[in-house]
Nucleic acid binder design. Structure first.
Lengths: 217, 217, 217, 217
DNA sequence: AATGAATGAGAATTCATTCAT
DNA sequence: TATGAATGAATTCTCATTCAT
């Protein structure tokens, strides 16, 4: 039963860790995290070998939340453009409700040390998710055949990652405002549709007569 | 005349600072930087108030190099697709020759503290460059009218930033390989053309009749 | 009746304490001791005020074992040389069967704090045992009269203490091998006879006519 | 020239380290050592990798002082009994003038970790010194032939080590008083002669007629 | 009575910054 | 002006001790 309590407390601890790591990167202080969670530093070391191990646990905790969010909505995938819209909106919602989780995601990538291990663990899910989807969409004729599905997924994910950072990380938020105007962070739907347009035919003006009716109307 | 000497030395110091900050983020140690530049920590404090000020100087130094590289190339901009290709290739070349500069770029964005100040200083150049170009291209009818030029520039820059990170930062390099295969870092032209295709018509299969004039006019 | 159970458990606890203190000195951790004894730290505090008190209890436990071993053997004391041989062999056997007890003995002497209290409690038994025996041997004419019996006992005990350390403590074991060869730890009888010879007439070469009745009478 | 200063300061630091390690074993705190030396903790880390490295440096410093003391007087070795007397007196003097150095010696032996390395480094000098001397004394007929010179040296050194501890370490001082009386620490010459007698013919009463005139009269 | 999770003071170590030379 | 040794505040991690269950 003490176990039970720990379970809850542990989650709270991870949440606090995520907040602090999101805010300060690995300059986050364990004693601050503990204080924030209204516990003592000792508990952290009861459950995790050291600061790195605890950081990794925070990373995993935040990732699984993101994966859950993405998993929920991928069921209702249909047309690529709608699939993309759903993902964008999911990430917007996720960024709004869990800003620290997304910032955490950014913090991971700072470390040079375990780059390869981390990358596989962290990107594995989405890279497979996107690549599979795109391959399927190519097979069903919904996406042009002459693009490398892996790289297509890569560019797609790049746009989504940057979008998340732009909603959550201080620096990227400022940058977002520079490009989109100071109120851009409140115009989610507008951003979504613009991004879809961009992905649809960024540099192909001469085909602007194309009418995909991307959701609006 | 001592100024002259310092000028050179200072440049060397900044280069070393960039390398160390690129490698270790703000865990980079001033004494290591000084040692690498074959100077004493004292000089750093002679010219800069503190570590933050020195970091900012390193940022500026690496930025101006990037801006110079971009300025040179973008003069000869013609069709948007060629303009994009030129920028991509410039960044690829820049990433290959100055990997630390791009990593440095990434390091800047870690700090929450001076996000706003940094963003204006750092992104100002490219955001204006891209937005102006896109606006001009829209006016001359080369890019569809129904996209917000600011956001268009934003997405465009997002793709380019991620591309740079993917060529320079350990974590992103690994991620790049996961999407593109273990030899993707050596296939610059392939990546360029794929990215152009993506930007051209990512989700627009049904219009595959579009001529993919990828540069060869 | 719970007392009964505790009695057994307590002994086990002390044994584990002795092992850990022998191994780690006062860096031994109470939680490790408890774990080793398959109990909780709580019990230690149920029976002992603090770590020091528990350490003292471990000391007493190991001492009484040594005293019992010595008591058994020394009853049958006859000629001094045989008495000495008996003690040496007893300590060799004790060191082999209870290495931790002897190492524990060594650990006690590290602390400056309670030196005086400890010394009386710990050395009282043997110092009296040896001094009495030597005095008696002097009275019965078996040992030269012109030696201070206390100091004689002191030197004698010094040799025995060092012998024990040399069989049990890592550093002293290595040192033993340096002097006696790498297999010295397996040559108990040889060591015994050499030590007896040493004590018998260390610097008395010119009287080598002395009968070296080394026990076999 | 700053080097020169450091040299001195470094010695002072080592002296302070020796005092603190002698007093508290490895519970000695680096910050206390630094404070005692009127320096900052930082200096210790400038010169030594970590606490262990600094401890080892203290050990070496104290050992070389002991070796110097022993070296000085071993030149004038003649008869074994005088040689032994000289060594005993040297150690008594050394213990009186450098009590911390001798306690330091004791501290070394606490560690299980690097027992073998330490033993060779630390005991090498004296073990070779004593064994060589004894072998030589056997060859010249001054010491009985039927004793293993290595073990003889071992027992001899054991007595000397214990004597040193007995003059310097709190616990052993108390023990010494128990055996020799409360004023034994002030009766150096008496102890010397008693120890010589002990070594001369401990259990050889029947040859008490031997007259070596050990210094007195 | 027994448990063992939680506490938090304490100790090692790092590194930006200063300042005597 | 340049140096780099020295400083010491700040941070990680440990473990004796407590106390709710």
């Amino acid at each position: 039963m003490l176990k039970k309590l720990s379970e809850e407390k542990l989650n709270e601890l991870l949440e606090c860790g995520i907040s602090e790591f999101a805010e300060h990167g690995d300059r986050a202080k364990l004693c601050d995290i503990a204080k924030r969670a209204d516990m003592s530093v000792g508990v952290i070391y009861k459950y995790y070998a050291d600061k790195d191990a605890f950081f990794l646990a925070c990373v995993r905790h935040s990732l699984s939340a993101l994966e859950n969010a993405l998993n929920e909505m991928t069921a209702k995938a249909d047309k690529p453009i709608n699939y993309a819209r759903t993902i964008i909106k999911t990430l917007q919602y996720f960024s709004a409700t869990h800003p620290d989780y997304a910032r955490m995601y950014y913090r991971i990538t700072e470390s040079s040390e375990n780059a390869a291990e981390f990358a596989e663990e962290i990107e594995g899910f989405t890279s497979r998710l996107y690549t599979q989807f795109i391959t399927a969409a190519q097979e069903s004729g919904d996406i042009r055949q002459d693009i490398d599905p892996g790289l297509f997924a890569f560019f797609f994910d790049n746009l989504l990652m940057m979008l998340q950072f732009s909603y959550c990380c201080p620096y990227y938020k400022e940058r977002f405002k520079m490009y989109g105007g100071s109120d851009i962070l409140t115009k989610d739907d507008y951003v979504t549709e613009q991004l879809l347009k961009f992905m649809e035919s960024a540099f192909t003006f001469e085909h602007a007569d194309i009418r995909h009716r991307n959701g609006e109307k």
